[in-house]
Design a protein around this nucleic acid. Structure first.
Lengths: 281, 281
DNA sequence: CAGAATTTGTGTATGCCGTATACCGTTTGT
DNA sequence: ACAAACGGTATACGGCATACACAAATTCTG
């Protein structure tokens, strides 16, 4: 709120690296490690084993350095996560939205975002705090704003729609990947025996969740069977009906998650159309 | 896929507690600790200091027990989080949606959810995995479905809208609370001196983010000033214009976050209206 | 009523995590 | 030649979730 002179240099910590301003001074020994290398191997780790596999120690070991060496290039783990998030959107600079109307372009915008997330599912596990400040986020927002160029929507509304769309995209992707991970884990623990044996307890195993008899575990729960077990017809009449009518879990039609997602996008865009019409009047 | 007989008992671990089926056997000493007490104090801790303050050790200490005693009542921390999430929606059973039309009821539904989150902001920090299976989540979904009772929308679409609305609600709440927390942290670190001193480094302070001269830190960044610093007019023409036109950060009008939120909800509902109209035809 | 069975809470230990701090060798500007 | 700056390492600390073994309390069974 004070002053109109643009502040000269010192960005808040963590942003300088993101926006690429680093002195690159000359005096010490030539570094064997670089921010790029760190971020790249961290992303590789996350791609392969999920975000929880990314620890300072693991990243450093994968690079053949000590844990603490990373801190010569990165302030802390949070900064690393920010850098990963930014680097995961590598293609954005050269991206162009296809479509003649705002509607086609926005749809394309959402889809591109969804595809970026699908390429790096750990994005949905990131503890994303506060509004986006990474350069690639900015580029992406700018791109979204450009989709509105043929409309008269006020800027605030454009931003609201952008936020709405990307929050939908993120949460839809999160659900899809969580489900996929759960399914993979269930399949894995059923097939292999080296996975976590149900829920390891010490000498007090049977109390909280009795591990069943000696019989093989009942054929593993799916979301649908669970729903049918839990939801009674009196308290949950509508959910009960849905659970017993099939078509909840894996849909047999060729209707995949991507189409599901686009249906949601289209619903939002219908709302945006009304918004634009209202403002044109 | 297999069998039509409802499976008899053994729910997957973690769900039994949520759905209240516990043997309550008789033989041991009378417990001085209960699941309820644990969950309650954990929620108290989270309300007061955020979700990161909830550790097994802290909860146990607050109760006057040892850390490991908790594990006699709860399988692991994740289960505790699930229980907290479920308990945070305490009022849902006695909840009724006001409104004559599906639209009013859905709007009310979203608002109620938002208010529940605002009462326990740590909900937005929860690593929520997979579709909701807690009883209170179910009740809430059932309530959302009931809002559609005067429409002909297929069930799948109803569920999609429910998901869309609540993902929007959650992410909007997350942004609001993250911003609030950041603002509080900035104000706190400016006023107090017992907070983390900027970014502590060892003998190598000045390299990554040089802490400025001895002068007092430049008046602290706001989102708007940051945007103005980072976003240049060539690469980000639209964002640049927005950043310099004011009205981004704290809006001076009496237009608070709740109204902002409801505007987004209304946009979604416009889309839903189109959806319903399409299906009625 | 005697012991067996079962359950609650405790103490201790393990292996991860992020990171503060002190140190040493290398490079470079003066 | 020397001081300053820098890159990497070793060590250590406090916190975390949780495995495991044990003691005391209670109740069921004979």
């Amino acid at each position: 709120m004070s002053g109109e002179a643009t502040p000269p240099r010192p960005l808040p910590p963590g942003l300088e690296l993101l926006w690429g301003r680093r002195a690159a001074g000359g005096r010490g020994p030539r570094p064997g490690l670089s921010v790029d290398a760190i971020v790249t191997t961290a992303i590789g780790l996350a791609d392969a084993e999920g975000l929880e596999a990314v620890s300072m120690a693991r990243v450093a070991r994968a690079l053949g350095f000590t844990t603490m060496s990373l801190y010569r290039h990165i302030a802390n783990k949070d900064e690393l996560l920010q850098l990963m998030w930014n680097a995961s959107a590598l293609g954005v600079e050269t991206l162009e939205l296809r479509g003649e109307s705002w509607r086609e372009r926005l749809r394309c915008w959402a889809l591109v975002q969804r595809e970026m997330i699908d390429r790096h599912p750990w994005i949905t596990q990131m503890p994303l705090a506060a509004p986006p400040l990474a350069p690639n986020s900015m580029i992406f927002v700018e791109l979204g704003l450009a989709a509105f160029d043929d409309t008269d929507l006020p800027d605030v509304e454009k931003l609201r729609v952008i936020g709405l769309l990307s929050s939908y995209t993120l949460s839809e992707a999160r659900m899809a990947h969580d489900a996929a991970r759960a399914a993979a884990a269930a399949a894995g623990s059923a097939a292999n025996d080296d996975g976590p044996p149900a829920a390891a307890n010490g000498d007090h195993a049977g109390d909280i969740h009795d591990a069943g008899g000696g019989s093989p575990p009942p054929p593993a729960w799916t979301y649908e069977t669970l729903l049918r077990e839990l939801v009674d017809a009196e308290r949950f009449p509508r959910l009960h009906a849905i659970a017993w009518s099939g078509g909840i879990g894996d849909d047999p039609s060729g209707f995949d998650e991507r189409d599901e997602f686009l249906l949601g996008v289209d619903t939002i865009l219908d709302g945006v159309a009304a918004m634009i019409a209202r403002h044109a009047r």
